[in-house]
Amino acid sequence: MSDPFDPQDTGWTPVSPRLATARILIGTVTVVVVAVLVLAVLAVIAATTSMPTWLLAVPIVLALAAVAWLVWWAPRNARSWGYQETEEELLVRHGIMFRRLVAVPYGRMQFVDVEIGPLARRLGFAKLSLHTASTETASTVPGVPHEEALRLRVRLTELGESRGAGV
């Protein structure tokens, strides 16, 4: 294994690129709701005071900048996630600027969670959570394709039981 954070390094399974789509959608809706609320408050203030009306453009410009940043950030972040099954542990990596690599030993896993919300279900992915006694070795992998998440849950449970931890 040359560089565990190199996306081109073979052996790593990437998460679904649809994770970026979900994050862009959720982020955009959040930004729009906040911008509309701020715009409404500013409109009331502008109507009742001598505030310049050009200030009403500020939340719109900030919202557009936030959505542009989301469109730039979300695909990069989704590409940074990956996992690798080894003989003794599941390796999980993520991060662009601040990178993290977590090794979760199969024998230390207490249970494996698969979560799927309405948007994730629609886009075909789930979040896989690996729980251990230590919060330092516990890990979560978002954006795992649904069928792969179910396969991993069964496989990791079997490996945990065979290694003596009792998942």
Rank of each mutant, 00 (worst) to 15 (best):
V71F: 02
V34F: 10
L42R: 05
S50V: 15
A46Q: 01
A66D: 12
V67I: 14
L39I: 07
L64M: 10
L42V: 06
A65W: 12
V38G: 03
A40D: 04
L37D: 03
L70A: 06
V38P: 00
A46T: 04
P75I: 05
P75C: 06
I45P: 03
A35C: 10
A46V: 04
V33D: 07
V38C: 06
L64A: 14
I45W: 08
V33F: 05
A65N: 04
T49Q: 01
P59R: 03
L55Q: 15
W54R: 11
V32Y: 02
W69D: 12
V61P: 10
P75A: 08
A74M: 09
V34I: 13
V71K: 03
P52L: 07
L70C: 01
W72S: 00
A63P: 06
A43I: 09
T48C: 09
V44A: 15
A35K: 00
A68K: 06
L56Y: 07
S50M: 13
L37W: 08
L56C: 06
I45E: 08
T49N: 09
A43F: 14
L70F: 01
I60T: 12
A66P: 04
L56M: 05
A46S: 11
A57H: 11
L56S: 05
L39Y: 09
L55W: 15
T53V: 15
L39R: 05
L70G: 04
P75F: 07
L64F: 08
L64I: 02
V38Y: 00
A47L: 11
